[in-house]
Design a protein around this nucleic acid. Structure first.
Length: 295
DNA sequence: CCCCAGGCACCTC
DNA sequence: GAGGTGCATGGG
């Protein structure tokens, strides 16, 4: 068992908003509390990883200017990557246009990072996100783990790794429908089968942004929006701006001239408006800010 | 009863 | 390429 601490050294970081802002559905709180439940300030979050080959568990919490972790594996490099600790938030924010709602969003959740989740789990969970609320998307991933994932023992408890492509490909559509995936069930099964048969979403990595997005849309259940989510939250394309219902409303309200009538052109316009290279960062702050402001 | 949720596949034209 | 339609499920 590994225990350790990552000193944040005064760098802005916010674990809760990073993990509960709808970027990732692959973590959960130790106490089983659903996302949106009251946060204690230093609660443990858990996830699983196959970064070292075999499935492992990582447990982490933010405390006293650092991140404490416990894990079955060498967790520090995994955490640094998955939690976006290498991103220079000040540089990113400096690239953002001066705009009241954007400044408010950055102020409110300062320290939130863009995650880099494993590609397969990222793609599957965003396939599940179609026409679905954040808390239910998260619940679906938990159901998939428990139904199909490999059990892992850690500190006296049993957890489940996120299912492998093979494990999900072996599921029947009906089994997936029984987990309340609805019409997404065949998409998940078929995409898992494609990956089990040798396709790899990581092939998109390194391609120019729009080519990468096109490549990902060959997976069943992956359109432009889901592809953008996978690019932003798994493959590190920080310029990606997923055009979901919230950001479309924001475009209507704040940037109406960016609406171009189709996904590709609207995407180009809003990326430009949000500063280009790090537009996805700003989109994510806006998404989280606008969504919470409603309550 | 209604509407909506981090949309997509499939069908026309 | 643009435009419509059907699709599961649960919460307000």
């Amino acid at each position: 068992m590994e225990r350790g601490r990552i000193d944040l050294d005064g760098v802005p970081f916010d674990l809760q908003s990073t993990l509960e802002s709808g970027q990732t559905y692959l973590w959960w709180r130790a106490d089983g509390a659903d996302y949106d439940a009251t946060y204690g300030g230093d609660d443990w979050y858990l996830t699983t990883t196959r970064a070292t080959g075999e499935p492992g568990v990582i447990k982490v919490r933010q405390r006293e200017g650092g991140l404490e972790y416990r894990s079955t594996v060498d967790a520090e490099p995994v955490l640094r990557r998955r939690l976006g600790l290498g991103d220079d938030l000040r540089t990113i924010r400096a690239s953002v246009p001066d705009d009241d709602v954007i400044e408010a969003a950055y102020d409110e959740y300062w320290g939130m990072r863009i995650v880099r989740e494993p590609a397969f789990g990222g793609v599957i969970s965003f396939i599940c996100s179609a026409q679905m609320r954040v808390s239910r998307i998260h619940g679906m991933q938990q159901s998939l783990r428990e139904a199909f994932g490999t059990p892992i023992e850690f500190e006296g408890d049993t957890y489940h790794a996120y299912p492998t492509p093979e494990q999900l490909a072996a599921a029947t559509e009906q089994e997936l429908r029984d987990l309340s995936l609805g019409y997404r069930a065949p998409y998940v099964q078929e995409t898992a089968e494609m990956v089990a048969d040798g396709a790899d979403p990581r092939e998109a990595q390194g391609l120019p942004y729009e080519e990468a997005r096109d490549l990902l849309t060959r997976y069943v259940g992956v359109g432009d929006k889901v592809a953008d989510c996978a690019l932003l939250f798994s493959l590190g394309y920080l310029e990606s701006v997923p055009l979901d219902t919230w950001i479309r409303t924001a475009i209507e309200e704040y940037y109406p001239d960016c609406e171009q009538g189709n996904y590709t052109d609207t995407s180009r316009a809003i990326r430009e408006r949000l500063g280009g290279e790090y537009a996805g960062y700003t989109q994510t702050y806006l998404f989280h800010y606008l969504r919470n402001r409603e309550e």
